[in-house]
Design a protein around this nucleic acid. Structure first.
Lengths: 250, 250
DNA sequence: TAGCTTCTGCGTATGGTCTACGCATTAAAG
DNA sequence: CTTTAATGCGTAGACCATACGCAGAAGCTA
């Protein structure tokens, strides 16, 4: 109870529903959930850049300033929207499931969440996860590593490593997909274009490795897109496995 | 020569100095380098949020709209600033150097660059690297993997994997460092606070793994900060090594 | 040398952004 | 019934990016 009053950021208390509502004044006309849902609706429709306080308020049929009774600042609105949009993590690791498939499933869930709400990647992250869903995701990620013999800090680092990779990869592919949509081309065409451009830029300069790359075929079609994701994930999990195996032996 | 006219984004042509300057009108009073340097100066002093067109123009003693003669839009200014701030990559792999230490050095250089200019992490990335420095970094990253038997797409994926990890880790630590500076606390204290907060939030809920974590010590001091970085990197490189060794054998 | 063309810097104006402040209204507590 | 606190929100201030157009500078051509 000495640390019962660890002070939390206001937006986090809001998200967890820890704000006492003494119910003195008039009844509130909205809930935080409604505000977040409206923000998400706007982001889904027109991208994160379209999420302005006035636009979200308009979506709810209230005045702009009313939102500030539900959220301390726009930045908090965005963070809370992201946490809400992530949704619940994939099912926890089953008793009969190995750590590796479990972690792979968790990573895939991460990708899926970002691809389901591509605007999430533009929400600036501010520190480690503390939102309700963020904490649940952390919990399930750690659950995948139970019984591996990894130390506490190693388990945390591993989960961060995997989620970081998932986020990066999802961001990159979403960037390409959106750029392709904007240009009216396929993602495949756009991938080819990148290497054409690199070819043009490295002409005349001293870029032996890149020039070498261009002689081998680096073309990617849609199926190899997924293969690329799995390549990185396999590298990552192989690296973890080396450690796990070493711990089990030593 | 059929692909001699691959069209490049305007900002990229600008950065590479590929814009013909027919020299018809009056002499320009600035160079792109000066504009970028001014923007970087502002970001360095007051953060990326302080970088507005008018502020950068003021720094240079010109009118706001004059900047648009050097840069198509603010977004391009930021991208170009980031590319310039990265600077040249670490020395290429030496002939006697193994791929693993070379890639580790390259990764460390990545970290150093972001820590030298912490605002870089807030510049929204838009696709694969095409700026002059971005391409040079790519070149040196690939050079570390020469002779490993990895295919072209595998080399590229590996480099992306490592740079992504470096960026993520540098971002996280920079977030913590800045938050600590704002709160007048040490990064160590703030790390402890995170776990205290997590303890508070997971009380009463169903978070067995996180609760378990809290019983083991997850405290990090400044030295373990660096150990955490190395842990992730070792996992990553171990994973690559498994593949490289397999290729050498098979 | 005269005129034409093109490029420069930049003043003005438009339509946005976030949010501090204060006020009238509502509802519960004493 | 009075006191107290919380709500919705109108107004206003301080920014922001950038479209447009113009006056002047510099080179090219005749």
């Amino acid at each position: 109870m000495s640390d019962s009053d660890v002070d939390l950021p206001e937006s986090i208390e809001l998200a967890w529903g820890l704000r006492e509502r003494p119910g003195k004044g008039p009844k509130r006309s909205l809930t935080l959930e409604q505000v977040l849902a409206a923000g998400i609706r706007v982001a889904e429709a027109d991208g994160l850049a379209a999420v302005s306080m006035s636009r979200v308020a308009g979506e709810l049929g209230v005045a702009t300033m009313s939102l500030y009774r539900y959220v301390p600042a726009k930045h908090d609105l965005l963070e809370l929207m992201a946490d809400a949009a992530y949704g619940p993590p994939p099912e926890v690791r089953r008793p009969d499931e190995g750590w590796r498939p479990a972690l792979a499933r968790w990573a895939a869930g991460n990708i899926a969440a970002i691809h389901r709400h591509p605007w999430i990647r533009h929400v600036p992250v501010g520190g480690p996860p503390m939102g309700p869903n963020g904490v649940r995701w952390l919990e399930h990620g750690l659950a995948a590593l139970r019984g591996t013999g990894l130390r506490a800090d190693e388990r945390v680092s591993t989960v961060m490593l995997v989620s970081g990779y998932a986020r990066n990869w999802a961001s990159l592919t979403a960037d390409i997909t959106e750029a392709a949509a904007r240009a009216g081309q396929s993602a495949e065409e756009l991938g080819v274009r990148y290497w054409q451009r690199l070819e043009r830029l490295t002409r005349g300069g001293s870029y032996p490795e890149i020039r070498q790359l261009l002689t081998e075929s680096v073309v990617e079609n849609a199926e190899e897109f997924d293969a690329e994701w799995r390549f990185g994930l396999d590298r990552l999990l192989d690296g973890v496995e080396v450690l796990v195996a070493g711990r089990a032996a030593g």
